[in-house]
Simulated assay, not measured.
Amino acid sequence: MLNHLIRFVLVGGGATLLQFVLLFIFVEFGHFNKIFASALSFAISAVFNYLMNYYFTFASEKSHIETAPKFIAVAALGLLINSTAFALLLVVMPHYLFAQLGATLITLLVNFLLHKMWIYRS
């Protein structure tokens, strides 16, 4: 379990970095609405997250047909948690990247537990 947690954190860190970079690009250069930019960057990083967790973190032997629908359900829940927390934190945080950091931390624990105990459980 510790090995999975370490890999999960590494993959999650990479996905989070990707999400923050995309958020910055969408807001600063694309002039997207901040909440939409957060949701879009979350969705794109979720694809990266799925593939890396499937192959690297959990080395799943299950088919994508079995794991992908579960992941999509978890990602949709994560998107809901992330977007709601981001929108609420955006009101009180001095910068949108701080709001995203708070939203990311809120989403992290739920995502790990659902990945480990439901999507990739052996």
Rank of each mutant, 00 (worst) to 15 (best):
residue 97 L to C: 05
residue 63 S to A: 13
residue 43 A to Y: 07
residue 86 F to E: 07
residue 93 M to H: 01
residue 91 V to A: 08
residue 3 N to L: 06
residue 104 T to H: 04
residue 38 S to W: 01
residue 61 E to R: 15
residue 59 A to W: 00
residue 75 A to M: 06
residue 113 L to G: 15
residue 94 P to T: 08
residue 21 V to A: 14
residue 56 F to M: 07
residue 120 Y to L: 03
residue 45 S to R: 06
residue 120 Y to C: 04
residue 82 N to W: 03
residue 78 G to M: 04
residue 119 I to C: 02
residue 10 L to P: 03
residue 110 V to P: 11
residue 25 I to Y: 11
residue 16 T to C: 04
residue 108 L to Y: 14
residue 105 L to F: 15
residue 87 A to T: 12
residue 105 L to P: 05
residue 104 T to R: 01
residue 3 N to A: 10
residue 17 L to S: 11
residue 40 L to N: 12
residue 95 H to E: 12
residue 12 G to L: 04
residue 110 V to R: 07
residue 48 F to Q: 11
residue 78 G to H: 01
residue 86 F to V: 06
residue 122 S to K: 12
residue 56 F to V: 13
residue 121 R to Q: 14
residue 58 F to V: 01
residue 78 G to N: 04
residue 1 M to F: 10
residue 120 Y to M: 03
residue 99 A to C: 11
residue 20 F to T: 11
residue 49 N to E: 00
residue 12 G to H: 02
residue 47 V to C: 13
residue 121 R to P: 02
residue 91 V to K: 12
residue 60 S to T: 12
residue 77 L to R: 03
residue 106 I to N: 00
residue 93 M to R: 03
residue 116 K to V: 02
residue 120 Y to K: 05
residue 30 G to T: 02
residue 20 F to H: 08
residue 71 F to V: 03
residue 47 V to T: 14
residue 14 G to N: 05
residue 47 V to P: 05
residue 26 F to R: 05
residue 15 A to P: 06
residue 29 F to E: 08
residue 90 L to E: 15
residue 89 L to P: 00
residue 71 F to Q: 03
residue 71 F to D: 01
residue 31 H to T: 06
residue 86 F to L: 09
residue 40 L to Y: 13
residue 1 M to E: 11
residue 31 H to Y: 08
residue 29 F to Q: 13
residue 79 L to H: 04
residue 117 M to Q: 11
residue 110 V to Y: 14
residue 56 F to P: 02
residue 9 V to F: 09
residue 64 H to G: 13
residue 54 Y to G: 03
residue 18 L to E: 02
residue 99 A to G: 11
residue 55 Y to I: 07
residue 32 F to A: 12
residue 85 A to G: 05
residue 70 K to C: 09
residue 76 A to D: 04
residue 117 M to N: 09
residue 84 T to A: 14
residue 61 E to W: 05
residue 46 A to N: 05
residue 40 L to W: 12
residue 44 I to H: 04
residue 97 L to I: 15
residue 34 K to F: 09
residue 39 A to R: 03
residue 22 L to V: 11
residue 37 A to Q: 09
residue 113 L to F: 14
residue 32 F to D: 08
residue 23 L to R: 03
residue 52 M to Y: 00
residue 71 F to A: 00
residue 109 L to Q: 00
residue 103 A to S: 15
